[in-house]
Design a protein around this nucleic acid. Structure first.
Lengths: 360, 360
DNA sequence: CTGAAAGCGCTTACAG
DNA sequence: CTGAAAGCGCTTACAG
């Protein structure tokens, strides 16, 4: 073992002429230390550049002040965005963040991840992985035996599990209703992969809006994409084929909407005059698509913040041995962002001018 | 303290009828254990669901097997992308990843971050923060006293510091040279914020390409953006004003190039006939811009992988007390991705058909 | 091949 | 207000 020459608490104690537990009291800001003693200790700490060993502290305190975060290693905007929110809040609350990324969130084995997290004695876990197919089954088998508090993001609520999600159903509903309010009548949908909970929810919202308006929501109006811009292209072509009278389309995310816009150009379809388009996510670039994209904003940072705050409550209760308070699923509300791509079938100004109004 | 009822090594030892150090030998896969003993121990571990306490192990081994990663909390593609690469490799090599995100990478105080990382006894640090303004000065004051190995990403090389970067200068050069090879002669540039090292490097590459071709690279051909699509819009307008004869523009990233494309549409400028456009990054959506964007691919995942591998070498050498091997800066090469936005001033087919060839 | 003992660097009752 | 001692759960020479 290489001597790191790390300064220990013992060294500080000797330097300040006090016992180690007095140094410990000062470090942990306890009140029961004489002012003069405290000063001497602080001075010794500063002079020696003492850095408390968090491993030792964690071992003796039986907690690490570390939160384990499991997220998805994808290049899409949303997962990365709420990861940032999570990190911000973890930082603000003084915890450390141990990060694991899943590369195959639909199938990846969860045990290995939990093993590492628990082995590192995390105080709690945030499972920021969207529900896809059966990737929640381990929960019903395991969750009760998870020895630390956990919060789950983006999933169908289950009994005795605390989850936080964006209200995707409502998002799909307001997106579709907006199209209807602009005079579009035949609204198709390009869903995300339908084994994703979020994709299904957005589709249900679309359906609800159409049915409320007394309009059809048939299977020929639906095509399933895979979130990529590329799939948006193919999906629009298929949709036009099986639903030729379509005058508007709701795409399950902004990337697919981008594919739709490009393909519309290629086909000579004018957006929004011939085809209204609405996306989902409000990625920063969507305001600069051509035409600027109407889309649904998700409070992703807030999602991350909320997750950490809720988890922290559970963790503190856990260590104080309080009864776990009644904690129920939280649903954050999305908001419609109206831009040029959905300006209706009959407008006077050219969409160009509108876009310039908005973006320049 | 709440009893977590955690199974300890002592409990396993009792269960298997051996000493704790024999259990330890089995856990750490040491050869000197009798087969039958090993079996009994493994069986006890499985039966009890024993999970080694990484904190205790770290404390006694004087190392945590954890790598501290400091990155930038931005929504841009590149920083998030190499973060994924870093995570993959950290995982593959069996380390844990302690993550800190900077929200103001240009000014943020570094001490607080280092304090937390070192306090957690990280084996090494990856500083995945781009060089901006003076945000490297702390290095010259501190680096020699950093008690653990560190690797820096995306910065101007400095003596006795190991850094890994994409060759941004070369990227700028091939982007510009490509425009020239397509027949464009008056190439403007929209740089990123010029206090960013990457922005300066890309600009130097642009300059070099023009000068090599015997063309001018004057200040009126240069405008400084801020990486956002929004700034791409304003920058194009300014550029057209101060450099009216411009027939092509090299944008410092894809988002700004997107702003250029949209503004060109709004002004009635045809891309690529009236204006060639090249971006930088090759974000996934860039293939679906209108027209599809020519851009420069950066091996970002590889950047992350390489950083971790190099750091691991240093860490292992450090713990074996070997001399730190000669380790010098690494420069990864970018690649040009040719699409429709730079197809030259005089082409026969419409750009629409070309785009369809490529994307559909 | 196996185990008793000491040690990693902290914190925690407990006593004064 | 302060300190001696024990303990957190592992691993490491050392001895046999």
């Amino acid at each position: 073992m290489v001597a790191k020459n790390q300064i220990t608490i013992r060294r500080v104690a000797r330097e300040a002429g006090v016992s180690t537990q007095t140094v410990s009291r000062v470090i942990n800001d306890r009140p029961d230390v004489a002012p003069e003693t405290r000063r001497r200790v602080q001075e010794a700490i500063a002079r020696l550049g003492y850095l408390p060993n968090a491993l030792a502290r964690g071992l003796s305190q039986q907690r690490s002040h570390t939160i384990g975060v499991v997220a998805v290693a994808w290049e899409y905007y949303a997962p990365m965005r709420f990861l940032v929110g999570i990190e911000q809040q973890i930082r603000a609350m003084g915890y450390n963040m141990l990060l694991d990324l899943l590369h195959h969130p639909d199938t990846e084995n969860v045990d290995r991840i939990l093993y590492r997290l628990l082995s590192n004695q995390v105080d709690g876990i945030i499972w920021a992985v969207p529900e896809i197919g059966n990737n929640r089954v381990w929960l019903s088998q395991n969750s009760l035996s998870l020895p630390v508090p956990a919060i789950y993001l983006t999933m169908q609520s289950q009994p005795s599990i605390i989850d936080i999600s964006i209200d995707n159903r409502e998002g799909g509903r307001i997106a579709t209703q907006h199209l209807l309010s602009q005079g579009y009548k035949k609204v198709g949908i390009i869903t995300g992969p339908i084994d994703w909970w979020e994709a299904r929810q957005r589709k249900e919202g679309w359906q609800e809006a159409l049915q409320t308006a007394g309009l059809a929501a048939e299977t020929n109006q639906v095509v399933e994409g895979n979130w990529s811009a590329n799939s948006g292209q193919g999906c629009l072509l298929r949709l036009l084929e099986q639903f030729p009278e379509m005058d508007a389309v709701f795409a399950g995310n902004d990337q697919m909407a981008l594919g739709v816009l490009q393909t519309a150009h290629q086909l000579g379809l004018r957006v929004p005059e011939d085809l209204g388009v609405v996306g989902f996510d409000n990625i920063p670039e969507s305001a600069y698509y051509w035409p600027a994209l109407t889309t649904v904003y998700q409070p992703l940072l807030e999602l991350g913040w909320t997750a950490v705050k809720e988890l922290a409550k559970l963790v503190e209760a856990y260590y104080k041995d309080e009864a776990a308070q009644e904690s129920r699923p939280i649903l954050l509300q999305p908001e419609l962002v109206i831009r040029s791509s959905s300006k209706g079938r009959s407008i006077n100004e050219s969409s160009m001018v509108q876009a310039m109004d908005i973006n320049l």
